[in-house]
């Protein structure tokens, strides 16, 4: 039989103190930190694009200079090769030194660096 006045209420609820910020606050905080991070990432991407542009233009400005120097060297070696060819083939009748093997007037870089 139950005691007089009934049984005591059963204590089933968790009895822990609420500590720290609530769930909503944590979610908001994490979102804010992520948002700031993505904002900085976006700024960084824009800056990276500009750095690439800077690098590209620094090279573009140097192209004519380097090309001119290379062209002079190629021209010098081509003239030397032509002179060699003329000397070697001087006895061959009908030989045109430096004539392209292609029926095309466009310039074509040499396939061989030097023929000894």
């Amino acid at each position: 039989m139950p005691p007089a006045g009934g049984f005591e209420a059963i204590r089933y609820k968790r009895n822990l103190p609420a500590r720290g910020p609530g769930g909503a606050a944590i979610l908001l905080g994490v979102t804010a930190v992520c948002g700031y991070g993505f904002y900085k990432l976006g700024l960084g991407n824009l800056e990276k694009r500009e750095l690439k542009r800077e690098k590209a233009w620094s090279r573009i400005h140097l192209v004519p200079l380097l090309l001119a120097e290379g062209d002079r060297d190629i021209y010098r070696r081509e003239q030397a090769a032509l002179a060699r060819e003329k000397e070697i083939m001087k006895d061959v009748h009908g030989w045109e030194a430096g004539k392209s093997v292609y029926n095309n007037k466009n310039y074509r870089p040499r396939d061989t660096i030097v023929v000894l």
């Binding site: 200079l65 001119a68 062209d71 002079r72 466009n106």
Partner: peptide, 18 residues
């Protein structure tokens, strides 16, 4: 250089650049 790729074509301009 755009006119002609031949190194002999732009020697004068190249010297000015250098």
């Amino acid at each position: 250089k755009q006119e002609n790729r031949n190194p002999a074509h732009c020697l004068k301009e190249g010297r000015r650049v250098t």
